[in-house]
């Protein structure tokens, strides 16, 4: 690149000076709250710590990584993390799309439904988890009472590993579905109506219009929704902590919860940092795969 030939439009010289200043606060925020902790986590993953006061007391190379990879709890947490991601994508994306399409129709009660969905989104994650914890309680929970009313047996919502994973996903979907739904709704409303009119004139039915017009034009929003859901699923922590504390038998513990347990329950900051770094790597790999798979078709 020849910088000598690089010229600046004289009318935009001011922007060149002010531009960096404008992004400085955001850049500083990113450095302080994102990159610096990430750097510390990476450093910590190679350190040994005093288990009493958690202060670093030496370097262990890849010892923490070896310990974590050999830990059956971590192996289980890795697979559970993937299950959460898959389930949340399967549950949230189609549901959010369906809701967005329904809300876009402006049917009676649309405003109420939109308010309810956004209300759940605005609620505290901990409060939502506590509400659902009460709903799932055996013997006294709302679901159990409904089951009893219909003569059905009590269900071990949070005490059976497989069912507990599903319950956590349902609670999270209830809480988080609002954001992707809003994104899809915005994208739906941005589709020019004349495309549908032209398709109708060509004899396209509803399904053809959805498949040939709506879905392709929604693809950038779908990609965004998919990324957001993937990241949210990987970071899932509060519902796990409140509903199951990782149990039973560690069957609901993902890598985020494993890291928390290592750091705060088992006085092991080194392995905790190593597992966090591995979670990050896993997330990078998955999002790169997603991006490549979707980019080839969407061109984004």
């Amino acid at each position: 690149m020849k910088f000598s030939s690089w010229t600046v439009n004289p009318t935009r010289r001011g922007e060149l000076a002010i531009g960096p200043l404008m992004i400085l606060p955001a850049a500083l925020g990113l450095c302080i709250f994102q990159f610096w902790p990430l750097g510390v986590a990476i450093l910590n993953s190679f350190r040994a710590f005093n288990p009493f006061n958690h202060r670093p007391n030496g370097w262990v190379g890849f010892g923490n990584y070896q310990a974590v990879l050999a830990d059956p709890s971590f192996q289980s947490s890795f697979w559970v993390s993937l299950i959460y991601m898959a389930l949340m994508m399967v549950v949230i994306i189609p549901s959010a799309l369906g809701l967005a399409i329904l809300l876009d129709k402006r049917m009676p009660g649309t405003a109420l439904a939109r308010g309810a969905i956004l209300g759940a989104l605005a609620s505290s994650e901990a409060v939502a988890a506590l509400i659902w914890n009460a709903i799932y309680q055996p013997n006294s929970g709302l679901l159990d009472v409904i089951f009893q009313t219909f003569g059905l047996p009590s269900q071990p919502f949070l005490t059976d590993g497989h069912l507990a994973v599903v319950c956590i996903v349902i609670m999270t979907a209830w809480k988080d579905i609002g954001l992707p739904m809003l994104i899809f709704l915005g994208a739906l409303q941005a589709i020019p109506p004349h495309l549908f009119e032209a398709a109708s004139m060509d004899g396209a039915n509803r399904w053809n219009k959805f498949w040939r017009i709506t879905l392709p034009l929604l693809r950038p929003s779908l990609v965004l929704g998919l990324f957001m859901t993937t990241i949210a699923a990987a970071r899932l922590f509060t519902p796990i902590q409140i509903l199951t504390a990782g149990g039973p038998n560690g069957q609901t513990s993902n890598i985020a919860y494993f890291s928390y347990a290592q750091a705060f329950l088992f006085n092991s900051p080194g392995p905790a940092a190593a597992s966090v770094v591995m979670m990050l790597l896993m997330l990078v790999v998955i999002t790169v795969i997603q991006a490549r798979a979707l980019r080839s078709r969407s061109g984004i």
Partner: peptide, 11 residues
């Protein structure tokens, strides 16, 4: 504690 809980619930 979680082990005891697991046992309580059937393990």
């Amino acid at each position: 504690n979680p082990a005891v809980k697991d046992i309580a619930l059937g393990t």
